[in-house]
Simulated scan of single mutants.
Amino acid sequence: MTGFLTLNGKRALITGGTQGAGAATVALFRDLGAQVLTTARSRPESLPNDMFVAADLTTLQGCDILAEAARNRLGGVDVIVHMLGGSSAPGGGVAALGEAEWQAELNLNLLPAVRLDRALVPGMVAQGSGVVIHVTSIQHLLPLPEATTGYAAAKAALSVYSKSLSKEVSPKGVRVVRVAPGWIETEASVRLAERLAQEAGTDYEGGKRIIMDALGGIPLGRPAKPAEIADLIAFLASDRATTITGTEYVIDGGTVPTA
């Protein structure tokens, strides 16, 4: 990929960039020549201080801290990649989701993107260029009611918000696109597959099959690799995608029958 794309000179902010697809995206952006700032609650030893900000983005204060750091350290941004997301909601369907669980899903999966865009997109508009990439999920098209209703609803809201933002700022030179991954083989998903395999008395491949069956099957036969998600995001952020805005790219191995 590095032989075909360049992000030289791009100033990029990538949230959730310390694990999984986020970490892969940070690494690829750096390889492609971008100046990258990323964030999480605590800094891993692998990331130097000059490219990391410790912040809790589920809070308004944390988003303000990160936005100010992006302005001070990068002088503004050319690319924002909203990778942050996830869910800790209990199983049990809608009845298991109280007020705290719903608020937690919105605070993690919707509001950080809204707050950071509000703080940083005006600078993109002022310079007449920029790219905002919202990482949604196929869950907003294919929710799993047992455990992901709140997460799926928050990602659906993020997708609609993203489309609205694109209609507003694309005429001003700022592209806004969405990437909707399916199951990604991250460290967390590997642990889940191993746990399911142990409970079912099978091996890791059998644990992966249990997850794929729960999703209704993955025609490709495997989950995506973090680097594959990063490749798509890097292309969309690059000058090779300058006419792409307002749309969503599903990368799920064919999980969603239509999109």
Rank of each mutant, 00 (worst) to 15 (best):
R41I: 01
I251C: 06
L84K: 02
V256W: 00
R115K: 04
D64H: 08
A154Y: 14
V169C: 02
A27Q: 12
L28T: 03
R71T: 06
Q19P: 14
K225F: 09
L60V: 07
V174S: 05
M124H: 06
K225A: 11
L111G: 08
D231P: 04
L220S: 15
L13A: 01
A12G: 06
I133P: 00
T2D: 12
T6F: 15
V132K: 08
P44W: 01
V77C: 10
T18L: 01
R73T: 06
A152T: 03
P171D: 13
R240G: 13
L60I: 05
S159M: 03
S170W: 07
V53M: 08
A154L: 12
V114L: 15
A95D: 07
T136W: 07
L110S: 12
L141I: 00
T242Y: 12
S238V: 02
V160F: 15
A89C: 08
G85A: 04
V190M: 11
I244N: 10
D31I: 03
S162H: 12
A113Q: 11
G98N: 14
S129L: 07
A126G: 01
T149L: 15
G22V: 00
S129W: 10
Q19H: 14
L7Q: 08
R115W: 00
A147E: 14
I65D: 05
E105K: 04
G206M: 07
A152E: 02
A157F: 13
L28R: 10
Q35F: 06
V177P: 09
T186D: 07
G253N: 12
G217F: 05
V114T: 14
M83H: 11
F52K: 00
V53K: 03
A67C: 03
L106A: 12
G206E: 03
A34R: 02
I229T: 06
M51T: 12
I211G: 11
P122K: 04
H140R: 11
A234E: 01
A180H: 08
I138C: 07
A113Y: 05
T245N: 09
G98T: 11
M83V: 09
L97F: 15
R73S: 14
E248L: 01
K155Y: 12
D78R: 03
I138L: 13
L120R: 09
G33Y: 05
L106I: 04
S166T: 00
R30Q: 04
A34V: 01
K163N: 06
G201W: 13
P219I: 05
V169H: 07
A34H: 01
V121F: 06
Q127A: 02
A95S: 10
G76D: 02
Y161I: 00
R222C: 02
D56R: 09
I218A: 15
F52S: 01
A259I: 06
L106F: 15
K10G: 08
E187H: 14
E68A: 15
R175G: 05
E99G: 15
Q127L: 01
E228Y: 03
T245R: 10
A214V: 06
G221C: 04
